[in-house]
C-alpha cells in the first residue's frame, strides 16, 4: 500500500514539476534563438573564400538534461506497445537546441559571424536501474569564424 502511495506521489511530482520545467525551458530556448539568429551555424565543411581574412576558433556547448519520473513511466508503457516515444523526443529536441545555443553564445563572445562544420554528439550518461535512458548529454561543436580587423 505504502509503495503505491510513494509511486503515485512520484508520478504527480514528475508530472507537475516536469511539465513546468519543460515549458520554461522551451520559452527560454525560443527567446535565445531569436537573439542569436544572426550567427549562422552550418555543417558545411568548406569555409567561404569570399569573406576576406577570417580567424577561426573551436567553440562548443554542452548540456546534460534528464527526463522526469512521469515521462519515464509513460515511456515504459510505450515500450510495451511500440511506436513513437513522444516523451523522449521532446527531451532530445530540447537538449540539442540548448547545446547549439550555448555554442552560438560562445561564438558571439568571439564576435564570430558564423559557425562552420557543426557537429552534434549525443551520449546517454547514466545507466539507471533498468537501463533506462534517464539523462542524456548533447555536445555541439564547430569552428567559429570571425572577421579579422586590420
Amino acid at each position: 500500500m505504502y509503495d503505491l502511495i510513494i509511486f503515485i506521489t512520484l508520478l504527480a511530482l514528475g508530472y507537475f514539476f516536469g511539465r513546468a520545467a519543460e515549458k520554461r525551458h522551451y520559452k527560454s530556448i525560443i527567446t535565445r534563438e531569436q537573439m542569436l539568429k544572426d550567427i549562422i551555424a552550418v555543417n558545411s565543411r568548406v569555409p567561404p573564400m569570399d569573406q576576406g581574412p577570417l580567424s577561426s576558433a573551436l567553440v562548443s556547448g554542452n548540456v546534460v538534461v534528464s527526463v522526469d519520473y512521469f515521462k519515464r513511466f509513460l515511456a515504459g508503457l510505450r515500450a510495451l506497445v511500440g511506436g513513437r516515444v513522444v516523451s523522449y523526443e521532446s527531451l532530445l529536441d530540447r537538449a540539442r537546441r540548448e547545446a547549439i545555443l550555448r555554442m552560438k553564445q560562445q561564438a558571439r563572445e568571439l564576435n564570430a559571424i558564423m559557425v562552420f562544420n557543426t557537429k552534434l554528439e549525443t551520449a546517454s550518461i547514466s545507466k539507471n536501474a533498468r537501463g533506462a535512458i534517464g539523462s542524456i548529454e548533447v555536445v555541439a561543436y564547430g569552428t567559429a569564424l570571425s572577421p579579422v580587423k586590420r
Binding site: L10, L13, G14, F17, G18, A21, E22, H25, N62, V63, V64, V65, S66, V67, D68, Y69, K71, R72, E98, I125, S126, N128, G134, S135, E137, V139
Partner: peptide, 18 residues
C-alpha cells in the same frame, strides 16, 4: 542527479563536470 530524475530538468553539475 537522482532527484532530478524525478523532477526532470538540466543536471548542471554533470554539465560542468563533462
Amino acid at each position: 542527479a537522482s532527484l532530478k530524475n524525478i523532477f526532470g530538468g538540466e543536471l548542471k553539475g554533470y554539465t560542468e563536470l563533462l
